[in-house]
Simulated scan of single mutants.
Amino acid sequence: MSQQTTSKNICVITNVDSLLGYALAYRFLEAIRNNEDPSADSKRKIRILCRDTQGLELKRLEEMGADLMKVNYKEEEKLREAMKNVRAVILIPENSSGRLKEAENLIKAAKHQDVEHLALMSFVGVDRIHKSGEDANSSEFRNFKEYHQIEKKVKETFGGNKHCIVRHQVFNQLYYFMAPRLEGQNQLLLPVKKDVKWGSVNMIDVVEAVYRLARKSHEQARNNTPDADPFYHKNVYELTMERTMNAENMAREIGQGLDREDMQYEEISGSDFRKYLESMKEDKRFRERPDAHGDPREGRDGWWSIPLGKFLNDQNIETMIEFWRLACKGQQDVHSDDLHKLLDRQPQNLKQYFKTNREQFRRFK
């Protein structure tokens, strides 16, 4: 994060309409409410950007102290207003057909208003498409290509130590949509070959890592010790588990976590997987957040980290499918110790995640 002192006291989190954006906003607001950093500026604010301010979910964040702003990411002038007095931005690209242009507009608006630091949330593997043997003109990885283009735009606009890119694997929370099959039929169905290696990660761990990264970097800047630990000023972080597994081993660990030793894995086509998630979008079990009082310290999901069906739009579904498509080409066998270092502990593994959240998954049976 930025290494110069400043009177600006606002941090912006975009796309809080998404699962990740909402969870990040909750974590940063919780930190302020609990006074987790007593030495921090007491006037600091969290501004959250969304397409629609309606709904109980966003009102909860507003009640926690968020400055809630409705924006149209196509209108750069309005985005400049949202960037006034902003010190840092966490950009979560929209799951929309205009994702690339909307992200570019926000990046330009942030630069125009002299935002000091911009962090981009991206996916592991977006920089490895060229290794997959894909034709340059193919649309096979259209969404991943857009993420990679946004990464390049961030680097060009916020050079040096004024930016960082945080890549992550698919989230374990995605499995909630598969709970009816996991709990009802003892089956894990995914569009990926059973013998290729890839990884999924607990979103709570990713959110906590991003919060700690922001806090530590700002602390070094405030104390004028930017070189105390260069790790906190890298430009790219890969937030992954420290080992990858094939789908059959994942099914085994999920089964053990759910106390179902006979869990089986079956590869399905991308089109069948898409149809399944589209059916979950309208499923009544995923219309409202459950009244779940989780404990992030134990990796237990709460109402802020359990997904809703409305998140499953076309772009989001296709992006997930591209993650596994890239895995099938051998390009998701990626692991790093960045997450471990940021958390100062081992990330929660798949078996632990399902064991901790076993009762949550049974809600969706």
Rank of each mutant, 00 (worst) to 15 (best):
A179K: 08
S122W: 01
D272V: 11
Y211C: 04
Q264E: 15
N9L: 13
M64G: 04
N357P: 00
T240E: 08
Y175I: 06
I107C: 09
M69W: 12
V192I: 03
L182W: 11
I13G: 00
H218K: 05
A103R: 02
L182T: 10
L61Y: 06
K275M: 04
P347K: 06
N172P: 05
Q4N: 13
G302E: 03
Y176R: 00
M280L: 07
R243I: 11
G257D: 07
Y353A: 06
L182A: 09
R274H: 14
Q332R: 03
K197L: 11
R99E: 06
R260I: 12
E266D: 12
N313Y: 05
K8M: 02
P230L: 09
G184A: 06
D295H: 11
F141C: 00
S279D: 13
K108Q: 14
A136H: 13
Y176W: 11
L190D: 02
R47V: 07
S7E: 13
M83F: 07
R99T: 08
D41F: 08
K145I: 09
D227T: 12
L308S: 07
F364E: 00
L342E: 02
K101F: 15
Q360I: 09
V201D: 05
F28Y: 04
F144H: 01
V210N: 03
R297Q: 14
P38Y: 07
R167Y: 13
N105M: 06
K131Y: 15
R44Y: 14
G255L: 01
D205H: 08
G21P: 01
A251H: 03
I92R: 06
I90M: 03
R51W: 15
K111P: 02
